[in-house]
Design a binder for these strands. Structure first.
Length: 288
DNA sequence: CTTCGATCCTGAAGGC
DNA sequence: TGCCTTCAGGATCGAA
């Protein structure tokens, strides 16, 4: 489900409601997701105040007091949302973090609704997600992060950076764009969309992409990701932000999921192919 | 070293 | 209506 824009949308929606509060208690309701859950480490977050919400690649990072960071990954089907503390657990609710209550004037205290406070919960039917705790200071050295490439919305990302990373490599440019060692956060939806915007055929070998086209591709990646964030992410099936609201970018998708529909630019029917087992959508006329 | 395919899991959708 | 197959936004591992 979530690629970079969706994780960013979750982060932005939750940050104002989480930063400054404490995890009052932590409930670990499943033995594991993609990896076993460290019950003691997660429960050890109880009582700590939330300092910041950050993102690295598709990981959401929740920094808490005393130098710890809760790392969450939503996998394919994960949802991270707020719910009233008294609401019964959802199906596949693997983690629940009960939040403390802010001492606000009553007319400002939305948290007072229901009288029981709120909880942050991770629901993930397919259990492809991750949840673990790391010391904040050594986060980047962890095996989940050590190999990751450049952030596409950072200043370090450019056509030149892509071209450099492509040196000595082969294979289709679509697989290259989805390789987290090259650039992070670009998943199956936005890889198709960025290649369409750049006019590059997904099957083109990385060895045959000219310098100017690497620049167009980098610009297309940034434009697609920024627009998707602005539109609240892509809700194809089940993506929602921290408040349970869906996104709108699915309306703006040019090719993804549109096999047989006319290309927005030239009306040629959109085609579907498969790269590394994943569906790829493209216009055979606009993309070369 | 890279690249590809299989794999973890549930649920939605489509064919019959 | 119901049963069966196929496919899905990610990331890792082993094989070649």
């Amino acid at each position: 489900m979530p690629e970079l824009p969706e994780v960013e949308v979750v982060r932005c929606s939750l940050a104002p409601r989480l930063v400054g509060r404490r995890f009052e208690s932590v409930e670990v309701r499943s033995p594991g997701l993609r990896e076993p859950l460290d019950r003691a480490a997660l429960e050890g977050l109880a009582g700590r105040r939330i300092l910041a919400l950050r993102r690295r690649a598709k990981y959401l990072l929740i920094d808490v007091e005393e130098g710890r960071t809760l790392v969450l990954h939503l996998g394919m089907s994960g949802r991270l949302t707020l719910a009233p503390a008294g609401e019964p657990p959802a199906l596949h609710e693997h983690l629940a973090f009960r939040l403390d209550r802010l001492d606000l004037p009553e007319h400002l205290d939305a948290w007072r609704e229901g009288g029981e406070g709120w909880r942050l919960r991770l629901v993930d039917p397919r259990r492809f997600g991750l949840a673990f705790v790391l010391p904040t200071a050594v986060l980047e050295g962890d095996r989940h992060f050590a190999h990751l490439g450049v952030e596409p919305l950072s200043e370090d990302f450019s056509g030149a950076a892509l071209r450099r990373a492509a040196r000595g490599r082969r294979g289709p440019v679509k697989s290259f764009l989805m390789d987290a060692r090259v650039v992070v956060g670009v998943g199956n939806i936005y890889a198709s969309e960025a290649l369409y915007r750049a006019g590059i055929h997904p099957n083109r070998s990385v060895a045959r992409v000219a310098a100017a086209r690497w620049c167009r591709l980098a610009e297309a990646v940034v434009a697609v990701l920024r627009q998707a964030i602005a539109e609240g992410g892509t809700t194809l099936n089940d993506f929602v932000d921290g408040e349970g609201r869906g996104g709108y970018f699915q309306v703006s998708l040019s090719v993804y999921g549109r096999e047989g529909e006319p290309c927005p630019r030239c009306a040629t029917p959109i085609r579907r192919a498969v790269h590394a087992g994943r569906g790829t959508f493209y216009c055979p006329r606009c993309q070369r």
